[in-house]
Design a binder for these strands. Structure first.
Lengths: 159, 159
DNA sequence: CTTGAAAAATTTAAGAA
DNA sequence: TTCTTAAATTTTTCAAG
């Protein structure tokens, strides 16, 4: 567990939502000189706290596509079967996120495809990937009401 | 629908996964001069194609927390009830993503809390927010196997 | 829509507190 | 850890193709 002071948290808070801010502007926001701000950012990167920087793209604006969320249950709960399924997921580019969960399902997948035809192919590949039984339930996303915009690190790290 | 050429797609492809790349490096990657590369990036921002830039933070490294995925079904499917629920979700910081879906559920939520105690509070707030009936099913995330790293825009936009 | 050059701004390393 | 300073680099504008 890396320990961070308030200034580090402020830096992370800003970078979560404005990753392309200049170091100079960032330093003003957190009341630091540009050089010590940069030093902290580099340290956070090296420590693995800042993992990567991404752009959000307005996909509906540039192409037709469908987003689905699929629940997955494996009949056989052996480590081997889990690993194999995870491997398959990792090598399937249409699956953009995958969570292992407790409860009535084993996995949640988020899948993005150009059209339903391609989705069916991905689905088939997941189902018939091996000879083990698997139940996949698909939910087509009709609207995304809330996008991830960064966590409230103050709340999460307080206490 | 905004129409993009191959160079625009390359720019988006790079920025999705390396949002803090310098414009100069980006221009080399896409075989353009720095100035025309910058011009394209600004145009993509103005057109709303590039929406925002985010950092991924290694949360397990800096604090204890739990991630849950919840399925939600409303008993009453009136527009009014949907809107009210969406409003509640938007004003609840622990809910970091929300999808309206077709099928057996109405919404999928991703929720991040410092601990289970706080999760229960959020859950209660969602359930008892109003006098309408709602079914929430919680799945604790045990592992995230695949993170969003950027779409393959070539595949999505081809044809 | 591009390039290339010049000006403005930022990043980054070094030295001192 | 911080800051200041200064050199290196990058961003940004603009004239011209």
């Amino acid at each position: 567990m890396v320990s961070l002071d308030k200034t580090d948290l402020k830096i992370l808070q800003v970078l979560q939502a404005e990753a392309r801010i200049t170091n100079q502007d960032l330093s003003e926001r957190v009341n630091l000189s540009a050089s010590s701000c940069l030093q902290r950012v580099r340290r956070l990167e090296q420590a693995g706290v800042l993992m990567s920087y991404h752009s959000r793209i307005n996909l509906p604006l540039i192409c037709r596509h469908i987003v689905c969320i699929a629940t997955v249950s494996l009949k056989n709960h052996s480590q081997q079967d889990f690993r194999e399924f995870e491997q398959l997921v990792k090598s399937t580019p249409e699956v953009v996120e995958c969570y292992t969960v407790s409860g009535e399902f084993d996995f949640f997948l988020k899948i993005i495809c150009p059209d339903m035809n391609q989705y069916l192919k991905v689905n088939d590949a997941l189902v018939s990937s091996a000879n083990r039984s698997i139940t996949i339930n698909t939910h087509v996303v009709m609207n995304q009401n809330k996008y991830f915009e960064g966590l409230d690190l103050g709340k999460l790290t307080s206490e």
